[in-house]
């Protein structure tokens, strides 16, 4: 059995009386790309945010290489190993592309500026953003911002990257450039959890598809299983609604 990088057991999250995640069991092995699909409001973002501890779980445990991330690990060290890419990019508005990719390295990982810079340049090149290293976020298009955000996550040398609808805020013509970066990343063996509405990406790139509904993982399996032969009614109706759009 291959080792689980992240394992989520009986995760529950409530905002006041609103129980958003009811009982989530989930795990991912090294090198795996998992797509998480489901209707809006089903709790996909909340699950990712709990994994990164941007939200504190109400109950349940999250393990990173078998260690409880809330009790056995230091939050900042753990977060440095689990990158996150947001729908709204969340680049640092006061810093240029290069500085965005350096800041976490120098402050959290205590790398020297020279080392951080070299690393940042390496990943900015991988996402095709070398020409824009001294542009501020407001000077970049959405697709360019998201590529910088991916480079920022990569520059921390994470073991896992969480993507929360990384292309949902983009103009249609920019979706492709971001998805192609993510596809290459997946092929290079990065461990990725991708919340997405891009069904083609989920089908073609991921190793496993997780369908969430109403705070629960309703169904999961290989893309062929979930898209080709969904077992649950919720999955069928979600997919038919989605594919008919």
């Amino acid at each position: 059995m291959s080792e689980h990088v992240i394992e989520v057991n009986h995760l529950k999250k409530a905002f006041g009386k609103n129980v958003v995640l009811k009982d989530i069991d989930f795990s991912i092995v090294k090198g795996e790309t998992v797509s998480v699909i489901g209707s809006s409001g089903s709790g996909k973002s909340t699950m990712l945010r709990c994994v990164n501890l941007l939200e504190t779980p109400t109950a349940g445990e999250i393990l990173f290489h078998g260690k409880n991330v809330q009790t056995e690990l230091e939050v900042s060290k753990y977060r440095a190993k689990v990158g996150m890419v947001f729908q709204s990019f969340n680049l640092f508005d006061n810093l240029n592309a290069l500085q965005n990719c350096m800041l976490g390295q120098t402050t959290v990982l205590k790398r020297s500026r020279a080392e951080a810079r070299a690393k940042a340049m390496e990943y900015l090149e991988k996402v095709g953003m070398t020409p824009y290293i001294n542009a501020k976020p407001r000077q970049l298009s959405g697709g360019q911002k998201q590529r910088v955000a991916i480079a920022r996550a990569l520059a921390m040398d994470p073991e896992v990257i969480l993507f929360d609808e990384p292309t949902s805020a983009l103009d249609p013509e920019m979706v492709g450039e971001v998805l192609s970066v993510m596809k290459r990343l997946s092929e290079s063996g990065m461990t990725m959890i991708v919340v997405t509405h891009e069904m083609a990406f989920a089908r073609d790139v991921s190793d496993r598809v997780v369908f969430m509904s109403d705070g629960l993982i309703c169904e999961q399996g290989t893309p062929d299983e979930v898209f080709g032969d969904p077992k649950r009614d919720e999955t069928k109706s979600f997919l038919s609604r989605f594919l008919n759009q």
């Binding site: 941007l54 939050v75 996150m84 947001f86 990019f89 969340n90 640092f92 800041l103 920022r152 921390m156």
Partner: peptide, 10 residues
């Protein structure tokens, strides 16, 4: 802005 920073461990 806070979340971007928190997500990389700052």
């Amino acid at each position: 802005q806070f979340e971007g920073a928190m997500s990389i461990g700052m």
